[in-house]
Design a protein around this nucleic acid. Structure first.
Length: 640
DNA sequence: GGGAGAGACGTTTTT
DNA sequence: CGTCTCTCCC
């Protein structure tokens, strides 16, 4: 198929695919068909004899990257099977792992899993004012990196922070690991310090999706990688919802000004939502002051759709109402996978999931704790890493303390001190201690723990030739906490000849549980996770002040509060524009917005929902202010 | 290194 | 309101 097959020459999609400029910015509202346009642009590139390896298509989330990848595979243009859709993080990992880059950067790109950082936090807590302070300062450190352009983080405002930063870097250096938040900044620093590096010319074409979700460091990485290439960025500042990772809508707004001669294109026809929803979304987002005025075009062919706004007395009534509605839909022949429920808080999601389960409606909640999060599973996973590489210092450090609250930080500090003096690695030192070739005071429990670990490793080693036996040993059948991890390993078994082959797939799964592309259930998720999805039946539940928008930190300035409020409004905007109209197939596009009058004080505290008054054990809630901002086309709220 | 009692804090998320 | 964290004491 030629890249322009069926493309109207006057359409924006055609203009995007064909834009000859070296810099192209596309602002594409929800449901306007940006992936379609991007695909066509890639197809055109391939047809003009561009080598797939020289095309870099990146997005911010893995789900989006996989979508993009799948879409690119389907192009049907020669070479498309070699195209990759990837996240910026996976690209950074790949580049930082190259030998010459490793040497230039001087840090090992071995990212710490969240559970592994717990050991690090304990090690750093003693000297740095406790765990809470340490966590805060880690946050500050990565935030400073994220906001920087690849200079030294330099966030240390006082002696305490300076000391902490030095300790943190020492720890990471000694343990040969990296914080996830350091990956992109170190890539940037490498590119900045090595202007002659081949990586600057690795790509001839960059396509960046969801540009509004990139933080400053990520934007800078793109700028370096794309300096000698043609760059096309796509995004929508009205859908910028990741300020907590320091992404900022200004990045995409200012991009045009930074690149003179940049083609600036806009996709505004909403091919997804029913007209009522488009009009509501337009009214809502227009309330934001800090934005370029712009509106989605509603397409009459989509029909008006169906919108219901309902208030219920209690949180559990909301669950009940949603369940009843869904039962009705399923009875009318709707498939569960056509329904998504968006809730911004786990407490609000829980009763809904329960109600659906009781009614035997297949449902999946992305708030549900996965077995992979259990401590048992994490320890087994770390043990696996240590088995594959005894010198994995992060894994060893974690395992040496993972069975106790303080991670044995004091005895471990003695071992580390010995290592730094002698040049031994922790693995070597622990072996000497275990063999009585070395004695260090107050390390008995630590050594006892190490002996348990080496026994476990020896048992794994004895069966390593047989992958099935290996899995049985590492993840024994019948252990409830390990069932999921075991299933995962068994699923990877096909084609895995050695234990090492197993790791890659499992690693992926444990660190970032997949959202499968095809689902059979009703899905419950946060508004963030819903980005990129669309569905004929969308519920947005728990629309009360304190959740949507969330409560403001009293420490914030007026500007900070305004920014948070505008982002929350964008989040709601993203949520309601998930609705997909398909009138020809009996799917008009339905949006159900619900909110309870009361929830228990316990839930309110837990979810950080602000409330002023209470009646008995119940907190009185206020309807979200956004419900009044949906304009004249929004139906009146009804009691449910 | 463990237990009791007081105080802080609570959301969304990227490898 | 509950859970995690810190301090103090043995």
């Amino acid at each position: 198929m030629a890249w322009d097959t069926g493309l109207d020459k006057s359409s924006v999609a055609y203009a995007i695919a064909a834009a000859p400029e070296h810099r192209v910015r596309v602002i594409a509202g929800p449901g306007t068909g940006k992936s379609f346009a991007m695909k066509r642009r890639v197809a055109k590139l391939l047809e003009s004899a561009i080598v797939p390896k020289e095309v870099l298509a990146v997005t911010f989330t893995r789900v989006a990257a996989e979508d993009l990848h799948r879409e690119l595979q389907k192009l049907g243009v020669p070479g498309c099977e070699d195209l990759e859709g990837q996240t910026l993080h996976s690209l950074a990992m790949r580049i930082l792992s190259r030998k010459h880059v490793l040497e230039a950067v001087g840090r090992v790109p071995r990212p710490l899993n969240t559970f592994e950082t717990k050991a690090m936090i304990c090690d750093l807590a003693g000297e740095n004012g406790g765990k809470r302070k340490v966590k805060k300062m880690i946050q500050g450190y990565t935030a400073a990196w994220a906001q920087s352009q690849g200079d030294e983080p330099g966030f240390a405002k006082d002696e305490a922070e300076k000391q902490f930063q030095a300790d943190l870097l020492d720890w990471l250096d000694f343990h040969e690991g990296m914080l996830i938040g350091e990956l992109i900044p170190y890539l940037v620093r490498y590119l900045k310090d090595n202007p002659a590096a081949a990586e600057h010319k690795e790509f001839k074409h960059l396509l960046v999706d969801e540009f509004q979700d990139l933080n400053k460091a990520e934007q800078t990485a793109i700028a370096y990688l794309g300096a000698a290439a043609e760059v096309c960025i796509v995004g929508d500042d009205d859908q910028s919802i990741y300020s907590f990772k320091n992404a900022h809508p200004d990045g995409i707004r200012e991009w045009k000004g930074i690149h003179p001669g940049c083609a600036d294109l806009e996709m505004a026809d909403c091919h997804r939502c029913p007209t009522t929803v488009v009009e509501m979304a337009n009214a809502l987002i227009a309330v934001n002051k800090n934005r370029t005025p712009r509106a989605l075009n509603a397409l009459a062919s989509k029909g008006p759709g169906e919108v219901v706004i309902v208030q219920v007395p209690y949180l559990h009534n909301e669950a009940e109402w949603i369940k009843n509605k869904i039962e009705g839909l399923l009875g009318a022949g709707v498939h569960p996978s056509e329904i998504i429920i968006l809730v911004q808080r786990a407490v609000a999601a829980k009763p809904i999931l329960q109600a659906l389960r009781v009614a035997e409606i297949p449902a999946k909640s992305y708030y549900e704790e996965s077995q992979l999060d259990s401590e048992t599973a994490q320890m087994r996973f770390a043990l696996f890493k240590l088995f594959l590489d005894n010198e994995d210092r992060v894994a060893l450090r974690y395992l040496l303390g993972s069975d106790v609250d303080d991670f044995r930080c004091k005895p471990y500090a003695r071992v580390r001190k010995y290592c730094e003096g002698s040049g031994d690695s922790p693995w070597q030192a622990m072996n000497k201690l275990a063999d009585d070739a070395l004695t260090l005071a107050h390390t008995k429990p630590l050594v006892a723990r190490f002996k348990l670990l080496t026994e476990a490793l020896a048992e794994l080693d004895a069966v390593k030739a047989d992958v099935q036996a290996f899995i049985d040993e590492l993840l024994p059948d019948g252990n409830e906490d390990l069932a999921e991890l075991r299933a995962l390993a068994l699923a990877q078994m096909e084609g895995a000849e050695t234990p090492a082959d197993l790791l890659t797939g499992m690693m992926q799964e444990i660190t970032q549980p997949d959202i499968p592309p095809t689902v059979e259930e009703v899905r419950l998720m946060s508004l963030h996770k819903s980005k990129g999805l669309s569905s004929p039946y969308v519920f947005v539940a728990g629309c009360v002040e304190g959740i949507l928008p969330p409560a403001f930190d009293p420490e914030w300035s007026k500007d900070e509060k305004d920014a948070a409020l505008e982002e929350a409004r964008r989040l709601f905007y993203v949520g309601i524009t998930r609705v997909k109209a398909d009138p020809e197939n009996g799917r008009p596009g339905s949006l159900f917005i619900s909110y309870p009058q009361q929830m228990t004080i316990k839930d309110a505290y837990g979810a950080n929902v602000a409330f002023k008054t209470q009646s008995g054990a119940m907190a009185n809630l206020l309807p979200s202010r956004f419900l009044n901002e949906l304009g004249p086309t929004a139906p009146k709220a009804v009691a449910g």
